[in-house]
Simulated assay, not measured.
Amino acid sequence: MGDDRHDDWTQGPELSAEQARRERERRQSSPGAQQAAPGEDAETLRERQRLAQQAMLDRWIDGVLAEQRRSRRWKLFFRFLVVLLILASLGTTLFGVFLAPGPMGAEGPHLGVVRVEGVIDRESRASAERILEGVERAWEAPGAEAVVLHIDSPGGSPVQSQRIFAELMRLREQGDKPILAVIEDIGASGAYYIAAAADEIHAAPASLVGSIGVIHAGFGFQEAIDRLGVERRVFTAGENKAFLDPFSRIAPEQRAFWQDVLATTHQQFIDDVKAGPGARLADDERLFSGLIWTGEQARELGLVDGLASLDDLARKRLATPRVQDYTPRLDPFERLARRFGRVVAEWAGLPRADSPVRYQLAP
């Protein structure tokens, strides 16, 4: 305090002794400035002012700390909420996979339903493995008066469709209980292939039925890469190994060969349909041309036996209409693993193992 110089630490440069004295007098004379009490010297006034400034600074710091504490509390709250939602979702999934009761036979007579939904594919929910597991459950259930395939599918893999058809025909020959097919919105191509193994096929009047044919679709980009100046490098052992490559030209003999493959697969489809509902099929050359009809038109052509929904069948066949779904639950972990595998394979440029030939309604 012996130094007369005053350092204005919040504003401006250091002041000389005379300048500091004048600044103190100006502040003391300004409105709102703290005035010295009677008998109080200048040194005491300065100390009181310093303490007031310190108290104001303390209040400001306390406010900042309080705001930071509130912010931290909200962050912790939202983090806790996110963790709680994740744990709830995980718990629900684990319960559904491991603890929830599986499809059990309903009490009393009922129809055992197995759903065929979406594209028929090895890695889809309409895979042969999943559908046949459901069929086996419904077939063995003592209260199931019939096995009902509830179909809403545009078709898909020939191999998966043929596998389901063959197993249904095997069960049908045992004759223990009828196998019925009900087409909800669409039962086309490979989905109709499956339905053909049933003892009876029913459809809604406005549903889409048929499309008995085989398809392989692709693109030819050979002229595009020529114009872009891109060189396609494919190394094969066997002159026809890459004949389906979209960036290579297809020779006439290769085109004829591939058309023969499709025709052979188509004939397999036709033979199996004739082995199923063949006796009631109309003598119409369009039946196996790949055309698709409404349920009402399909009944006139013999593709379906009647127009009925699942509820209609339950009322007609049972005194107390009752259905039980025997379709196996989807394993969410398995689905996630398969999707992750597909993404990784596509990202790495690895070829997929899906068959290029499809019993599927063209999009």
Results as ranks from 00 to 15, higher is better:
318 L>V: 08
174 Q>C: 04
209 V>R: 07
258 W>S: 07
241 K>C: 04
172 R>C: 10
241 K>E: 12
36 A>Y: 11
29 S>T: 02
72 R>M: 07
165 F>C: 02
317 R>G: 02
239 E>P: 01
296 E>W: 05
250 I>L: 11
329 R>I: 10
137 R>G: 08
248 S>H: 10
307 L>D: 07
109 P>F: 03
84 L>T: 15
216 H>T: 14
5 R>C: 12
288 F>K: 01
159 V>C: 07
56 M>P: 00
90 L>H: 09
127 S>Y: 03
229 G>E: 12
158 P>S: 05
113 V>W: 05
228 L>F: 14
363 P>W: 10
257 F>T: 02
172 R>H: 11
91 G>R: 08
152 D>Q: 10
55 A>F: 08
73 R>P: 00
324 Q>D: 06
314 A>P: 06
3 D>P: 00
122 R>E: 13
37 A>I: 03
131 I>G: 05
223 E>D: 12
181 A>E: 08
271 D>F: 02
17 A>S: 15
77 F>Y: 11
104 M>I: 08
334 E>T: 06
1 M>T: 06
149 L>A: 15
162 Q>G: 09
232 R>V: 14
17 A>T: 13
120 I>R: 05
277 P>K: 13
277 P>I: 15
271 D>R: 00
333 F>E: 03
184 E>S: 09
45 L>C: 07
50 R>A: 15
113 V>A: 08
254 Q>M: 09
66 A>R: 14
108 G>M: 13
23 E>I: 10
67 E>L: 01
91 G>H: 00
142 P>W: 01
327 T>G: 03
5 R>M: 09
58 D>P: 02
36 A>N: 14
305 D>W: 10
31 P>K: 14
191 A>C: 05
32 G>Y: 00
218 G>S: 02
332 P>I: 08
106 A>F: 02
313 L>F: 13
124 S>D: 14
162 Q>M: 13
360 Q>T: 13
132 L>K: 06
353 A>C: 07
75 K>T: 07
93 T>G: 03
281 L>I: 10
21 R>H: 12
99 L>Y: 12
331 D>K: 04
80 F>Y: 02
304 V>S: 03
273 V>W: 08
125 R>H: 02
62 D>S: 00
303 L>R: 04
169 M>H: 05
159 V>F: 14
146 A>M: 12
329 R>P: 03
